[in-house]
Amino acid sequence: RPRTRITDDQLKILRAYFDINNSPSEEQIQEMAEKSGLSQKVIKHWFRNTLFKERQ
């Protein structure tokens, strides 16, 4: 599977949600997927990776 490139606009959407809640529900993930055009799997990975980076 090729690597997914996240655009600046998509990143703004993900960051806005992350700043509010770094552990989103399935409904929130689905909402982000619809708004951003990214798959739910990509969003879950982004949140997991970003949370890991923030904790270091």
Rank of each mutant, 00 (worst) to 15 (best):
N22L: 03
R1V: 05
F18P: 04
F52D: 09
F47E: 01
L51T: 09
R3Y: 13
L14H: 00
I6C: 03
R48W: 05
I20Q: 14
A16V: 05
R1S: 04
T4I: 10
N21E: 14
F52S: 09
I20P: 13
W46A: 03
P24L: 04
E31M: 10
E54D: 08
K53A: 13
S36C: 12
L51Q: 15
Y17K: 08
P24N: 01
P2V: 14
I29Q: 07
L14F: 03
I29E: 11
N49D: 14
D19K: 14
S23M: 11
K12R: 11
G37W: 01
Q28F: 02
E31H: 08
V42W: 08
H45W: 13
L14M: 07
F18M: 10
R48L: 10
K53I: 15
E26R: 13
F52C: 15
K12I: 08
I20T: 14
F47Y: 08
Q30N: 09
D8W: 09
I13T: 13
E26N: 14
S39D: 01
K53S: 13
L38K: 00
I43C: 03
A33N: 08
R48G: 10
R3M: 15
E26A: 11
M32E: 00
Q40R: 10
L38P: 00
S23F: 12
I29C: 07
D19W: 02
D9G: 07
E54M: 03
W46M: 03
I29D: 01
D9M: 09
R5D: 15
S36A: 10
E34W: 04
K41A: 07
Q28D: 07
K53T: 10
V42G: 09
I6R: 01
K44F: 11
T4D: 14
M32T: 01
S36G: 04
E34P: 01
L38M: 12
F18T: 12
S36W: 02
E31L: 09
E31A: 08
Q10G: 01
K53M: 08
K44W: 03
D19F: 05
I13F: 07
Q56W: 02
P2N: 15
Q28P: 01
K12Y: 02
I13V: 11
D9C: 12
R1K: 00
D19N: 14
E31G: 08
K41N: 02
F47H: 07
V42D: 14
K53C: 05
K53R: 08
A33D: 03
G37K: 10
R48C: 10
T50A: 12
K35C: 02
R55T: 06
F47C: 07
P24V: 03
D9H: 13
P2L: 10
W46L: 04
L11E: 14
L51A: 12
R5K: 15
Q30W: 03
R48P: 02
Y17N: 13
T4Q: 04
R5N: 15
S36V: 05
N21R: 05
S39Y: 07
R1D: 15
P2D: 13
R1A: 03
G37M: 10
V42N: 05
R5H: 14
N49A: 11
Y17D: 06
M32W: 01
K44A: 13
Q10C: 04
R48S: 08
L51P: 07
T50G: 09
A33I: 13
R15M: 15
R15A: 05
E34C: 02
E26D: 09
